[in-house]
Computed example of a mutant assay.
Amino acid sequence: MPFSIETTIEQITAQFGQSPLKSTLENALKTSLNQKQGEFEALQAALQNGDLTQEEFQIEIEREKALLTAEMETLKIIAKAEIQKIVNQVFQAITSQLK
């Protein structure tokens, strides 16, 4: 069966349910995985052609997993910084109104 990033994204984002972050996570996954589609297809072909052993294939998949984790962690840090910025602005506004 041909590899499909879209199918993978659909399967994963369906698990997000009603999360308010669903579209943000979906967009982040689409961007990252679409950039890697060629790499995944090359890995699949190499495995099928016998150019990679199952162990080598698994090592490459784990490497890709680590890269995606790092990308998602970066988004987490950015989101946390944005939330802190908003909270600071809210309390600056509240403080200025209470004076």
Rank of each mutant, 00 (worst) to 15 (best):
S4C: 08
T8A: 03
G50C: 14
N34M: 02
N34L: 03
Q97V: 10
L43E: 05
I12D: 00
Q44T: 11
T31W: 02
P20C: 02
K65R: 11
M72K: 07
T53K: 02
F40P: 00
S19P: 01
Q48N: 14
E71S: 07
Q84N: 15
F16H: 06
S19H: 11
L75A: 03
S96G: 07
Q15S: 14
K76N: 12
E73V: 10
L52H: 08
N49T: 09
F91Q: 14
A28K: 06
T7N: 11
E10A: 14
L68A: 05
Q35C: 00
N49P: 01
Q18E: 12
E10F: 10
T74R: 15
Q11L: 13
I12E: 01
M72Q: 08
N27H: 05
Q97T: 10
Q35Y: 05
L52Y: 15
R63I: 08
Q11G: 15
E39K: 06
A66T: 09
I77C: 01
A14F: 09
T69S: 06
Q54D: 13
N34Y: 03
A42Y: 03
L43V: 05
L98E: 11
G38Y: 04
G38S: 07
E73Y: 05
E26R: 13
D51M: 08
L47R: 13
Q92T: 11
L21T: 04
S32G: 03
K65N: 07
E62P: 01
T95R: 11
A81Y: 07
L98V: 13
T74C: 01
K80E: 15
G17I: 09
M1N: 10
N49V: 01
K76Y: 12
Q84D: 15
T31K: 05
I78G: 00
T69H: 04
D51A: 14
I77H: 05
E55L: 12
Q84H: 12
I61E: 06
A14E: 12
S19Y: 08
T24P: 00
Q58A: 13
Q58C: 02
P20E: 02
G17T: 10
M72P: 03
L43Q: 08
L98F: 13
V87E: 15
E26H: 07
K99Q: 14
T74E: 06
F57H: 10
E56F: 07
S4Y: 09
T74I: 08
K65T: 07
L43N: 08
K30A: 01
E71P: 00
Q97N: 12
A42C: 04
E26L: 06
F57D: 00
T74F: 05
Q44M: 13
P20S: 06
F57G: 00
I12A: 06
V90E: 09
K76D: 09
T95D: 10
T13P: 00
T8L: 04
S96N: 11
I78R: 14
T24Q: 07
L75W: 01
L21Y: 04
A42D: 08
K22M: 01
G17H: 11
S32I: 00
L47G: 01
L75S: 01
E55F: 11
D51Y: 07
T95K: 13
L25F: 09
T7L: 10
A42I: 00
Q15L: 15
F57E: 00
A66H: 03
F40K: 00
T24Y: 06
